[in-house]
Nucleic acid binder design. Structure first.
Lengths: 168, 168
DNA sequence: TTGAATTTTCAAAACTTTTTGAAAATTAAT
DNA sequence: ATTAATTTTCAAAAAGTTTTGAAAATTCAA
């Protein structure tokens, strides 16, 4: 397959993949394009290569920067801003895990804590089922939180090495 | 907090949580309500308790059944159909992992395989970056696939026990 | 400073997804 | 077989999200 065709396919399916994970298609496509580009790109490059408007590029780039997945790059002597993406997929993954843990998992665990001590007779089957469900989810979430914490902190090689041994 | 208030909060935040994971709000809310209900519910119960239309309940219940998260229950002597959700959160999680692995991860890995052998000189930096990115993602994805496979097959207690030891 | 290049913003438009509700289909009791 | 209860379907409406593009703001070189 030719590079240009392969690029198109990669960008388009990375975009579709993103939408299953709560990330918008354009953001994922910009990220895909930056990951496969050896050199940093400008907003105009992104507009042109993805056929999207300036405003769209600008907003999605901002989000990607907030997620810690893209960086602004200053090229001396150049007026325009350039952008580049982290290319080590392990770092991309841990960055996403770190952010989602903070944005989603931690608030959920905090809420479950509050919901766990609902008033009333624990013998009532409605209350019992509610509390059992909530505390089951809480325990599971705490376990996941702990595990993700270790992953995020771990050094790539140590972790991958350990995992391979553990799961092989 | 009163049970009715706690239920409302749980349902609403489980719905919001779902939207970050590519699941629609109503589907997640139906699932939440069924998880905290000790007895099976009918479509009418769901319509009433969540204030949504019959068609909406019907379609989302169908999806939940396809995901393997909800089951139809026949109650002898009752005309209506009843629905119940898996309440063991570990089973819920492995079921979701199994499905998403099949629907998303596996097709992505298949595509990456094809993209990896793009034509042209591997010395060209564009080709090199493309191939490096694609194979990096592929390796990572295969690793994840293997790990998830183990999780899904594992028995709850064995796995949780092993994880706790491993990550503590 | 000035002004040209560049980036940012945001209201309106386009697009996508979800929801509704009534009609059609199915089911099961008589 | 008939009928009433229940479930399913799906076109149209509503709601939600993303994209556009032009105006405003910012930046920087001269």
């Amino acid at each position: 397959m030719k590079l240009s065709e392969a690029k198109k396919q990669f960008i388009s399916s990375w975009g579709a993949f993103g939408t299953h994970w709560g990330i918008n298609k354009t953001m994922a496509q910009i990220h895909a394009l930056l990951m496969i580009s050896p050199d940093p790109l400008t907003q105009d490059d992104l507009m042109e290569q993805l056929s999207i408007s300036r405003g769209n590029v600008n907003m999605n780039i901002r989000d990607l920067i907030n997620w810690g997945l893209v960086d602004r790059v200053i090229i001396p002597g150049e007026r325009k801003e350039y952008f580049t993406a982290e290319k080590d997929i392990w770092k991309v993954a841990t960055q996403i895990i770190k952010e989602r843990k903070k944005r989603e998992l931690e608030p959920m665990l905090k809420l479950l804590d509050q919901l766990e001590d609902v008033d009333g007779d624990k013998k009532d089957k409605n209350i019992k089922q509610f509390v059992d469900t909530v505390s089951g989810i809480k325990k599971f979430g705490q376990q996941a939180d702990k595990m993700l914490q270790v992953m995020v902190k771990a050094d790539e090689n140590w972790f991958v090495g350990a995992l391979v041994k553990f799961f092989k």
